[in-house]
Amino acid sequence: KLLSSIEQACDICRLKKLKCSKEKPKCAKCLKNNWECRYSPKTKRSPLTRAHLTEVESRLERLE
């Protein structure tokens, strides 16, 4: 599967780190437990900047 097509777990399953069936409108866990089942939009991760990478590398060197 391509990364862009990976389905996201519902908010509660993601928060509780449960295996989500990803069914809509309610996944199996939410249906069974009568929880409100919501699927928040995916958040875009910002790409690493060179400055951040350099900072992490220098912190790693100090720890070694």
Rank of each mutant, 00 (worst) to 15 (best):
L3T: 11
R38T: 15
N33H: 11
C27G: 02
R38C: 14
K29V: 00
R14C: 02
K32P: 01
L3V: 10
Q8R: 05
L31R: 15
S4H: 10
C13S: 00
R38Q: 13
R59I: 00
L31W: 15
T49L: 05
V56R: 03
C20G: 06
E64L: 08
K26Y: 15
I12Q: 10
E57F: 08
K29E: 00
K16L: 02
L3F: 13
N34I: 11
E64H: 10
A51I: 12
L48S: 05
S40W: 05
S46H: 03
S21Q: 03
V56G: 03
N33V: 04
I6G: 09
K29Q: 07
S40G: 07
N34M: 14
R50A: 00
K32D: 04
R38Y: 14
R59G: 06
L18M: 15
S5W: 04
E61I: 11
L15W: 12
E55Y: 13
L63W: 02
L18V: 01
K19S: 06
S40D: 02
E36N: 13
A51M: 11
C37A: 08
E7W: 12
L15Q: 09
H52V: 00
L15A: 11
C27E: 03
R38K: 10
T49Q: 07
C37F: 06
K32M: 12
E55D: 13
L48Q: 04
K22M: 04
W35S: 13
L31E: 13
S4K: 05
K32R: 15
A28N: 10
L15H: 10
S58T: 11
L15K: 09
N34H: 11
Y39S: 06
L60G: 05
T49N: 00
N33Y: 10
K26E: 12
E7V: 09
L3A: 13
R38P: 07
E55A: 12
R14W: 00
L3N: 11
Y39L: 06
K42T: 09
W35V: 14
C20K: 06
R62C: 11
N33Q: 13
E64I: 10
V56W: 01
R45Y: 02
C37G: 06
K1E: 02
R14V: 01
C37R: 04
D11V: 11
C27R: 07
C20A: 01
C30Q: 01
L48M: 07
P47V: 06
A28W: 15
S58N: 12
R50K: 03
A28D: 10
D11G: 01
S58H: 14
K29A: 05
R14A: 08
P47F: 01
S46Q: 03
K32Q: 13
N34D: 12
I6A: 10
K24F: 15
L48N: 00
P41R: 01
N33W: 02
I6M: 13
E23Q: 15
E36D: 13
E7D: 11
T54R: 03
L31V: 12
E7H: 07
T54W: 07
P47T: 00
L53T: 03
W35T: 12
E7K: 06
E7A: 07
S46W: 02
K16D: 00
N34Q: 14
E57R: 10
K16F: 07
L2R: 11
K16M: 01
L18D: 01
V56P: 03
E57K: 04
L63F: 12
R38I: 13
R45K: 05
K29F: 07
P25S: 09
K1Y: 12
K32W: 07
E23Y: 00
A28V: 14
L60S: 07
S46F: 02
L53Y: 00
P47D: 11
I6F: 13
I6P: 11
E55M: 13
E57L: 00
K42M: 12
Y39M: 06
C30D: 03
S40E: 04
L18C: 10
S40C: 02
L48D: 01
C20N: 01
K29G: 02
P25F: 01
L53Q: 00
Y39P: 00
R50I: 04
S58Q: 14
L31H: 14
E57P: 06
A9E: 00
C37T: 02
E7T: 08
L31Q: 12
R45G: 00
N33T: 08
K24A: 15
C10W: 00
S46T: 11
K22G: 01
K17N: 07
T54G: 10
P25E: 04
V56E: 03
S58C: 15
P47H: 04
K17I: 06
L2Y: 14
T54I: 05
R50D: 06
